[in-house]
């Protein structure tokens, strides 16, 4: 039962993962395939990569994608300012051209960006390619190439082969459809909001001192709130903020003080409309059901 060990190891790092997700990670590890995680914002996709890197005590290398991300920012770039200075200095010292050239195109002048960095580590790191759907389609095509060969060719230096294969985790919020080619290369898992038991577990791990009654009230409240007609559904991070706020305010029972509950709700509701819609009465109704 290898995956159960992994689940336990993740739990040690305060990450409670569902069985389905753990099996997917286990497969990705044993098949050495990238894992594509999709799901709403705030379900813990990025956090998973962090926890995974800690369980394996390796480095977490993160590439945050955005529109216009290109090879220079994701693979490597020459440190051209340093090269210029070096050339200037060398010219004054009267060093021959060949020597200068050899010098300025050495690894000292190479700025490693996440993708190159991830294949040159001694111990295979966790490479997190965050929000891949934000990057352009060209970048996706380019990423495919690296993910299949795990090598990078630099014209001045030659091909750099991978020392170790990184554990690749891609996340997507689905702002656009990813290409079938990329999907096919990856294992896929959709991360849902956790169920009640799991979420209570998460809360207990993150707030060990929390009162059990309050914990279950908070989770019922947040889970009911997620079913309301909201613009931005609160994720796990919001739930944790909410519970921290309540603990900070010294609350022991959710339905106790409507005003304090309402002020703590600022950690859950992130748009004006949502704050407008969830009035004190609505919050009390939900809290009443949760109690």
């Amino acid at each position: 039962m290898e995956w159960k060990d992994l689940q336990a190891a993740l739990a040690e790092q305060s990450y409670i993962a569902s069985d389905e997700l753990v099996v997917a990670i286990q497969l990705a590890l044993s098949l050495e395939r990238p894992l594509l995680l999709e799901g709403s914002a705030g379900v813990g996709k990025t956090e998973l990569a962090r926890a995974l890197s800690q369980t394996r005590s390796t480095k977490l290398i993160r590439l945050q994608c955005y529109e216009g991300l290109d090879a220079a920012q994701s693979i490597y770039e020459w440190n051209y300012q340093r090269q210029l200075i070096s050339i200037r200095a060398a010219a004054d010292d009267g060093i021959s051209r060949e020597q200068i050239e050899k010098h300025v195109f050495s690894k000292d002048f190479l700025l490693e960006r996440p993708l190159l960095m991830s294949i040159t580590q001694k111990r295979s790191p966790v490479l997190l390619i965050d929000e891949i759907d934000r990057a352009d389609e060209e970048f996706e095509a380019f990423l495919l190439e690296i993910l299949s060969d795990y090598q990078v060719s630099i014209p001045e230096l030659g091909t750099i082969d991978s020392v170790t294969k990184p554990i690749v985790i891609l996340t997507s919020n689905g702002t656009r459809d990813l290409s079938d080619a990329l999907r096919r290369r990856c294992l896929y898992s959709y991360v849902e909001y956790p169920d009640r038991t799991t979420e209570i577990e998460i809360l207990k791990v993150r707030q060990p001192t929390i009162d059990l009654l309050l914990a279950s009230q908070i989770i019922d409240f947040v889970q009911k709130l997620r079913k309301e007609d909201l613009e931005k559904t609160p994720g796990i991070a919001e739930m944790l903020d909410f519970s921290a706020a309540l603990i900070g305010l010294g609350v022991n029972d959710l339905s106790h003080d409507p005003e304090i509950l309402q002020s703590a709700m600022t950690t859950l509701l992130k748009t004006k409309t949502d704050q407008w819609n969830i009035t004190t009465e609505v919050a009390q109704r939900i809290a009443g059901q949760a109690a």
């Binding site: 069985d19 099996v23 497969l27 079938d180 999907r183 294992l187 896929y188 959709y190």
Partner: peptide, 18 residues
């Protein structure tokens, strides 16, 4: 259940398929 869970990440590619 283990078979199901293990084949799922391989076979599906989006939420609908999932």
């Amino acid at each position: 259940f283990e078979v199901r869970r293990s084949l799922k990440p391989l076979c599906v590619g989006n939420l609908d398929e999932s």
